[in-house]
Every structure is written in C-alpha cells, then in structure tokens.
Nucleic acid binder design. Structure first.
Lengths: 154, 154
DNA sequence: ACTCATATGGCAATACATTGATGGATCAGA
DNA sequence: TCTGATCCATCAATGTATTGCCATATGAGT
C-alpha cells in the first residue's frame, strides 16, 4: 500500500470520524439544546484564564480556527439563548469581549457531566498513551493544514 | 494534564483538522468545481472493484458513513453535473447502482493529479510510519464513535 | 393475496461552514 | 487632520450535515 492509498484512507477516516463526532456529540448535549460547535465555544469561554473578562471575537476565531461569518452566527444563537454576552471594552472601542453569562455558566456546569461521560465513552478503548499520541498527530496535521490554508489567504 | 483535558484537546484538534481539510481540500479541487465530499464520492466510485457496475446508495452510505438525505443531495449535484448516473438493477428493482459516467471518469482522472499534490503537501512532514499510525488511530476512533452512533439508531 | 421489511426518493427544518463583498466604528501614525 | 489599518458586523450565495416524517416501489415470507 503506497503513500497515496494511506493518505486517501487517512483523510477518509478523518472525514468519517469528524462527522460521527458532530453527530454523537450533539446527541450527547441535545438535552441542553446545544451542538458540538456551541459546546466548543462555551468550553473556550469557560477556561479559567478567560472566564472573567471573556475573549475577543478575533481570539475566538484563532482558537477555534473558523471563519468570522460562521462564528458570528453561532454567537448570535448563543446570545439569543442568553448563554453568552458581547461586552464593549474600555481600552479599545473596536474590541468586544464575548463572555459567559450567569446562565451560560450554569448551563456549562450542567453540560460538563454529559461531556465527561461522552469522552469516557468515545475513548473507552483508548489508553492515555493512545489519546496523547492521537492528539499529537492531529495537532501536527492541523498545523500542516493550517499552513496550507494560511499560505494564500493573508 | 488529566484524561478529560487530553480528550478535550483531542476533539478540538479533530474539529479544527476536519474544518481545515474541507477548506484546503475544496480549494485544491475548486478548478474542477468540486468539493471534498464530491471528491470522496467520486473516489469511492472510481475504485477498481466497483468501477464497472457502481455501488448502491446503501453501500455508499455505509462506505462514507453519512446520512441518506445528505448523500442524496450530493448525488443530485454530481448527476446534474453529468459525472455520475443512477442505473436500475436487473436482479432487484429496489436497488440502484450509482456509477461514474464517461465524463465523470475523465473528470476524476484530471482531479487525481491535484489530489496527489494535495496529499503530498498536507502530509509533507509526516513519515509513512506517522501516516499509518494516524490512520490506525483514526480508524479506531471512527469505530468507537460509530458504535456510539449505532447503539440507539437501529 | 397479504403483510412486513427493504431501498430509494422527497420535503421540511435547523445548524454548520465556506467565500465574497460591503459598511461602520475605532485606533494609530504621518 | 487625514490616511490607512484593524475589529466587528451584515447580506448573500452555495454546499454540507443532521433529524424527522412521508411516499413509493419492490422483494420475501406466510
């Protein structure tokens, strides 16, 4: 099996695994009316380092690596649900910090139990070493693809 | 770093890598007016084992692991572009074989060069062992997620 | 014949995700 | 002050991707 065939199968698995992640992940948090993308945003905003002041839209885009137009729609839905708020910054009038509301905070805490169960389920037959290995390989692949994506678009 | 944090980062990388794959992959075949999903379908149909008679919709769904409604839309677009045709089967009137048209065959051959370049680019700093390792891990993750997905929906 | 399962297609709703173009508000430097 | 860059938002188009429900046609077994 040559490198082309390996690459072909590798990307097919990436495609399948990603679709299944969205499908099963969204199902895991569906009782909260959430999706995997909203879960990713809430997770980013719940991190201790940014929990207080929130994150700028720009930083969120860089963190999640999605387009601004896409993120705006997700934030609109989260804002509509009252889980997130956009606050103007004192220092720089252009910036807006997106941060969790009190309701968003509670919501995230409740979701966390489901998410833990989901992770445990999805990675049941993966050792911690396997998880780390897969993480590092995906990290490299992401960087590699990000390099291709960024080469022409800036 | 506990298992939860590892899992969290792992799935974020999967999310990012998948988005970047679609973004850069679609760009790589954009001159043919194709997308990564259409590329996946054409690739499935071009395999020697099924090139002649084609595949049933059911088999395509199992191969790509997407929903019927999603695949139907992709097939409609491919059929509209004249790259694919749905043929009735003699043995079983319910089945339809999806197969490449002559135009689809030519189109795929031309795309193949771009795809090879893309694979080489995306996996430039991956050894063959790395590729195999990542493939096997993604394969296991896909199976694991597929097990979760299939547990309740059948 | 009748019934049940299978295979496909259609319609609708919702949510991602991209590109492209446009506009407005703000900041920083010449 | 003017000029350009930055940050955010909006509108539009296209293409995934899911769920749910209904319809049709065919096959298989009783």
């Amino acid at each position: 099996m040559g490198r082309f065939d390996i690459a072909n199968r590798l990307f097919l698995r990436l495609y399948q695994a990603s679709n299944l992640m969205h499908k099963t992940g969204t199902r895991a948090v569906s009782v909260f009316g959430a999706t995997t993308q909203q879960w990713a945003v809430l997770g980013a905003l719940s991190r201790p380092a940014v929990h207080q002041r929130g994150m700028t839209v720009k930083d969120l885009i860089a963190f999640l690596m999605v387009s601004r137009q896409n993120l705006t729609a997700v934030l609109d839905r989260l804002e509509g649900a009252g889980l997130v708020e956009r606050v103007r910054i004192v220092g720089d009038g252009r910036l807006r910090h997106v941060r969790l509301t009190a309701a968003g905070d509670r919501n995230w805490s409740e979701m966390l139990a489901s998410i833990r169960d989901y992770y445990a389920d999805a990675l049941a037959d993966f050792s911690t070493e396997d998880c780390l290995l897969l993480f590092r390989l995906l990290d490299r692949l992401r960087d590699s693809l990000g390099r291709i994506a960024g080469a022409e678009s800036e």
